[in-house]
């Protein structure tokens, strides 16, 4: 039984991790709590859904389409709610991205309606038995996509020139600019990557829950924030591990304690981390408080 629950936790955790990676990347380079990230996730799910329903696309095309659409949305977000906003007021960019959150969520309600929409079966449902545990093809598919994305991203950040520029910008804007990094471009690319990954996470979430609604963004945003803190602000591998950890904790507490108490545990973790380990479980390079 416990192995089965751990597999389920891994599944949930993988989507948390994908959302938190975007958060933590963006927080890293901008020191900005980017509230609209959950809505990007929701938009990704809808783009994927419409590509499948209207375009008759297969799931890989839907994933790619959602990724590209969300990356573009990330660029729009930078130009609308980050760049023009006053820099000398710490609250201003936070509030403008809250504004963007409200706009995106309600545009989705306006266009798609406030109800839950079913997600068609795009991955053939088969069950495999490994001794005592049962794994479905959908679960394997989601885990495979999530793992691939995380590995590619990790390689990108650690081993490419752009990845190094992102790390340098996260460390210190001025120094990075002095060393010849185009900080504005780095910020833009970070938003594109983070938003693209959130888009994929949205589609995966649609496949997993076989239904999406315009309101899934807020919950995803909050869970992503918890994971970001748990992993350490700006710490990408930390976010990956912390996502899996939170997924397991939630599934285990839902299985052995109760489904309503599940959120109680995640928010208690949030508060305890904030009070006793603000650097997260795996440390952070961020020292500045805002």
């Amino acid at each position: 039984m416990i192995y089965q629950q751990l597999i389920n936790g891994l599944m949930l955790g993988a989507s948390y991790a994908l959302i938190a990676i975007g958060y933590t990347l963006i927080f890293g380079v901008l020191k900005l709590l980017y509230f609209a990230h959950g809505e990007v996730f929701m938009v990704g799910a809808f783009v994927g859904l419409y590509l499948v329903i209207l375009g008759g696309a297969n799931i890989y095309v839907a994933l790619l389409g959602a990724m590209i659409a969300c990356a573009m949305l990330g660029v729009i977000a930078v130009y609308v709610s980050v760049r023009p906003v006053a820099k000398n007021r710490p609250l201003a960019p936070l509030i403008s991205t809250i504004g963007l959150t409200i706009v995106l969520q309600n545009l989705a309600v306006y266009i798609f309606g406030g109800q839950q929409v079913g997600f068609p079966e795009t991955v053939k449902q088969e069950l495999y038995n490994f001794g005592p545990i049962t794994v479905s093809s959908v679960q394997i598919f989601i885990l495979a996509i999530a793992t691939t994305l995380m590995v590619v991203l990790w390689l990108f950040i650690e081993h490419t020139k752009m990845g190094r520029a992102i790390r340098a910008t996260a460390e210190n804007h001025e120094t990075a600019a002095l060393l010849g990094v185009n900080v504005n471009r780095v910020v833009l690319i970070t938003f594109m990557i983070g938003s693209g990954i959130a888009g994929v996470a949205g589609v995966l979430d649609g496949i997993k829950n076989s239904g999406i609604s315009p309101f899934i963004g807020l919950g995803a945003a909050v869970k992503g924030l918890i994971v970001m803190l748990l992993g350490g602000l700006g710490n990408v591998p930390g976010a990956m591990v912390a996502g899996l950890l939170l997924g397991m904790i939630e599934i285990l507490s839902a299985a052995y304690i109760g489904t309503t108490e599940r959120d109680f545990f995640s928010f208690m973790i949030l508060i305890l981390i904030l009070l006793y380990r603000p650097t997260g479980l795996f440390g952070t390079r961020m020292t500045e408080e805002r």
Binding site: P90, I226, F267, I271, P278, E289
Partner: peptide
């Protein structure tokens, strides 16, 4: 009291977590 130790986005997240816990208690 605990909120005194933290500032900015940490405080924002702490208060947000508190509100969510209240809502979970009301639910259960």
């Amino acid at each position: 009291f605990p909120a005194l130790r933290i500032k900015g986005i940490y405080l924002l997240l702490l208060t947000l977590g508190f509100a969510e816990i209240i809502s979970v208690i009301a639910l259960s």
